[in-house]
């Protein structure tokens, strides 16, 4: 697969169809993958593809990265899950389909965190999203690398995240509250969750607004709670469960739980899952006379 990927990237750059290929390369010690931006066809050889390719590179397509945008039309190496974010960005008018060349990678799963890698991809080091993945064959792409896989996700989603949500849902409200207050107490307000999220593309985040100040920037319980809940609300109907926020969190806050819970709520209320179809607008930005009103009590 790596060879096909390199050849394609080289060809795209040589023909001038794209100016930069956003992909994965090795770090100096070749122990971890890291995002690379290839502009010279000769450097296409440094592209790699393996289960350590965890980053969701759709992040670099957002308007937060002006310097990358300035390089010219990009091609992006994307797994199915990353493509979901690209789709959301398109439905939200961030760019058009033709503005980006998607090199879709057929995927058999990645590691949850790179440091867990011991040379073999085993189910226990894969994140919940991979166990339930329905886009291992890229669903929107200009070029697909890899053989089609026959993997079918389980009918009822399984994995740690779903188990934990079930466990939390069965608890009384006070216990759930206590759980989240404890988890958020570790928050250091570094905003890595926001920075790594391709759907957090606001140029001025609400937490940076101080006239008036909506969210207290101090890492105390009130500030932490308002930040994390606000971010969760801003991702409702948009988050694709790519898991980057939880991976980037330096203090291990289980953000996947919140995001997956929200995905479940949106699915139930609007029968909508984000990231599949660029033509369908997410429920939070459209009005329909058929919208349920049963939340008004």
């Amino acid at each position: 697969m790596e060879n096909t990927l390199r050849q394609k990237a080289k060809g795209l750059l040589e023909s001038g169809e794209v100016k930069v290929v956003i992909g994965y390369g090795w770090n100096r010690a070749k122990t971890r993958t890291t995002p690379v931006f290839i502009t010279d066809p000769a450097e296409a050889e440094s592209l790699v593809w393996n289960p350590l390719c965890v980053n969701n590179l759709s992040l670099y397509l957002t308007r937060k990265f002006k310097e990358i945008k300035a390089l010219g039309r990009p091609a992006v190496v994307a797994k199915g899950c990353d493509i979901k974010n690209i789709v959301v960005l398109m439905t939200e008018g961030q760019f058009k389909r033709e503005d980006v060349f998607i090199i879709g990678m057929t995927c058999s799963g990645t590691v949850y965190r790179q440091e867990l890698w011991k040379g073999e991809l085993t189910p226990n080091i894969m994140p919940t999203k991979c166990h339930n993945c329905d886009v291992r064959n890229p669903h929107v792409a200009d070029f697909v690398v890899g053989e089609k896989t026959n993997f079918t996700p389980p009918e009822v989603p399984t994995g740690m995240v779903f188990d934990k949500i079930k466990e939390l849902d069965s608890k009384p409200q006070a216990d759930r509250w206590a759980f989240w207050v404890k988890e958020f107490s570790r928050c250091v307000k570094c905003y890595a969750c926001r920075q790594v999220c391709s759907l957090c593309y606001c140029e001025r985040c609400i937490t940076e607004k101080n006239m008036p100040q909506w969210i207290e920037t101090s890492a105390h319980p009130r500030g932490n709670l308002s930040w994390n809940l606000t971010r969760a609300m801003h991702l409702v109907g948009r988050c694709t469960f790519c898991g980057e926020c939880e991976r980037a969190c330096p203090v291990n806050i289980p953000l996947n739980l919140i995001n997956q819970k929200m995905i479940g709520v949106v699915k139930e209320a609007f029968d909508f899952k984000s990231g599949y179809d660029e033509k369908t607008h997410p429920p939070m930005i459209v009005f329909s006379p058929d919208d349920k009103e049963n939340f008004i009590k």
Partner: peptide, 9 residues
């Protein structure tokens, strides 16, 4: 450093 996402972690 263009890959830096500015998270500050």
């Amino acid at each position: 450093t263009r890959k830096c996402i500015g998270c500050g972690a």
